[in-house]
């Protein structure tokens, strides 16, 4: 049986791992290559590296860093941040990334998703969505690292992207990100039960039981977290042991 995945996320700025609260107030969390290798050793199922400043500052994710990472870890990893063309992706894959994630560029140019699927296959195309629940109760898509609101609803964009060829959705709730109060169960469940591709839940994981909730209650295929791992608040090994005890199918 396919196991649920635990995915540490390394947000990278200027070559360092950083983590903020609600998308601001960045704190330094160490060398991404060292951290990635450590997580792989501890039992992480995959890794995600996001160059969070890339879109804003119009910089490309550093392919050299990706190359370095690929030499030190033996599990799959996804790279995102500022990817806007087939050529961007080719360079990252050639440097060792297994999957790439697109966000703002795909929203502005949906054809990109289709082009990537055609060139590299949907299995390596992850669509990242930053979403926020507004006062009207609806979940809206945000762009540029959460700085720009759109009028598009999260589920609508996710469905469209899957039709275009996205092979996986990385869903981050801006309401929950950095709060450690638990994942956004309702929107995660909506996507996980209505889409035909795996959904990674992100934002809000702060205690071990939050992971049980997001797998059992929200039906997520994978759960992503950052600061709790970086600052050693929850270890990957104890977390996976705990999930196993709770009868979640997990790789130990």
């Amino acid at each position: 049986m396919l196991t649920k995945r635990i995915i540490p996320c390394l947000d990278i700025k200027d070559g360092r791992t950083v983590k903020g609260t609600n998308f601001v107030d960045l704190r330094d969390a160490g060398d991404p290559v060292e951290l990635g290798a450590l997580y792989a050793q501890q039992g992480a199922d995959e890794l995600v590296f996001l160059d969070i400043t890339a879109t804003v500052e119009k910089r490309k994710t550093l392919s050299e860093l990706v190359n370095k990472i690929s030499h030190h870890i033996n599990i799959p990893f996804t790279v995102g941040g500022g990817i806007s063309s087939v050529d961007d992706v080719r360079v990252l894959l050639q440097n060792g990334a297994d999957k790439i994630s697109v966000n703002t560029a795909a929203y502005k140019n949906p054809q990109l998703v289709q082009d990537l699927e055609k060139e590299f296959g949907s299995q390596c195309v992850v669509l990242a969505i930053d979403t926020r629940q507004e006062d009207d109760g609806e979940w809206y898509v945000y762009l540029n690292g959460g700085r720009v609101k759109t009028e598009t609803k999260c589920l609508d964009w996710a469905k469209k992207a899957v039709d275009l060829g996205a092979g996986e959705i990385l869903l981050t709730s801006m309401n929950h990100d950095g709060t450690k109060q638990g994942f956004a169960l309702d929107i995660t469940r909506t996507l996980a039960t209505q889409l035909s591709v795996p959904v990674i839940a992100s934002g809000g994981g702060g205690a071990m039981e939050h992971f049980v909730d997001v797998f059992e209650n929200a039906k997520a295929d994978a759960a992503l977290a950052a600061s709790i791992f970086h600052f050693k608040e929850i270890g990957i090994e104890p977390l996976k042991e705990y999930l196993k005890e709770k009868n979640i199918n997990i790789r130990i």
């Binding site: 396919l2 949907s122 996980a192 039960t193 035909s196 591709v197 795996p198 295929d221």
Partner: peptide, 18 residues
């Protein structure tokens, strides 16, 4: 075949399996 995949229809088959 998506119809044969139990519980939920998810393709690609992605992740760690027995």
């Amino acid at each position: 075949d998506e119809k044969l995949i139990t519980q939920r229809t998810k393709i690609p088959h992605m992740g760690w399996n027995d």
